[in-house]
Structure formats: C-alpha cells, structure tokens
Computed example of a mutant assay.
Amino acid sequence: MNLQFRMKFNHMSFPTVDVTTEAKFFEEHFGATIEFVDTATGNALLKHGGTDIVLEAMKDAVPWHRDFHFGFELETKREVDALHEELKRVGVKLETEVFNRVGRGSRFFGRTPGGVQFEINTREDMDSKWDANKK
C-alpha cells in the first residue's frame, strides 16, 4: 500500500508531576503560551506556533530514556549561544556546551524541570551535505 498524506506535526504530550513548573518553563524559556489548565485533571495545554504541548499531571515521576528529546531550532548560532548563556545564568540544567557535531549545525542539550531532554539548534552553520532541502 502506497498512501501519501500531507501531514503536519500537531502536538507533543509529556507526563509530569509538576504541571505548573513545567508549563512556566515552556512559557518563560521557549515562548509557549499557556492556553488553559484543566481543573478536573490538572493537565495543561500550551501553544507553540502551530504545535500544541500537552502536559499531563502524574502522581509518580516518569523515567525518561536518556536520549529521548524534543528540539527547537533557532535562526543563528549567535541566538543558540545567547540562549545557552541565558539558560545557564538562570540555573536550567544544561547537559552540554554549544557544539557542532559532524557539521550538522550548532546545538546544545538540557533538561526541563520534569526531566525531559531538549535540544536547541541552528542550521545556519550546517555543512551543505546535511541539508535535506538540497538533495
């Protein structure tokens, strides 16, 4: 079966024991907007561009695989460096310095308060061989 659909990424859903802290983190550091918190479940819906971020209230902490992560892309390396410095300044748990692995663009990794790994990157300094748009 060879079906072709036009899909767009719709949402991410993360379980967390502290919805309020996690929601504020996404709002303050990644520019998400808190749309509402469901008083019955404690779950929250945030918006980031055309993507929903759902934070699901849990009683017990959820263990994350160390390599599971989500990523945000910035336009320039200068912005990546600046955000890295700002997150470091305010005490966000960062796992790496800014680096450019095999020419794929500058990036760094950190963790949300709930333990989910995030990546911040840019394609500005990416080697052309990695550019999917040029293949």
Rank of each mutant, 00 (worst) to 15 (best):
Q4V: 04
G49Q: 12
G31Q: 10
E28H: 04
R104V: 02
Q117W: 00
V102C: 01
A23P: 04
L87Y: 00
E22T: 10
H65T: 00
E85H: 04
E75M: 06
E75L: 11
H84S: 03
L46S: 06
L45C: 07
A23D: 06
G105W: 02
E35K: 12
H84Y: 01
D60W: 00
F72Q: 09
F26L: 14
T112M: 05
G49T: 03
R111S: 11
H48D: 02
T112I: 02
P113K: 05
F25R: 06
R107N: 13
E22F: 00
N100W: 04
F26G: 08
G71K: 07
T21C: 11
V92R: 10
T41R: 07
V98E: 12
D67R: 05
V90P: 08
H65W: 01
A23E: 06
E22L: 13
F26I: 05
V19C: 09
K59S: 15
A40W: 00
T20D: 14
G115E: 09
R6M: 05
F118L: 07
F99K: 13
E97Q: 12
G50R: 02
F26S: 08
G91F: 01
K59R: 13
W64N: 10
T16I: 02
H69G: 04
E27W: 00
F36Y: 13
T21A: 15
I120A: 07
L55C: 09
L87S: 03
K88A: 13
R101H: 13
K93E: 15
E79V: 02
E73G: 03
E27G: 02
F118Q: 09
I53K: 08
G114Y: 00
T41L: 07
L94Y: 09
F99S: 13
F70R: 03
T51A: 14
F9P: 08
E85Q: 14
I120D: 11
L74W: 01
V98S: 09
F72A: 03
E119L: 08
K8F: 01
H84E: 07
H65P: 09
D38G: 03
H65L: 10
D67M: 10
E85W: 00
F5M: 09
K47V: 04
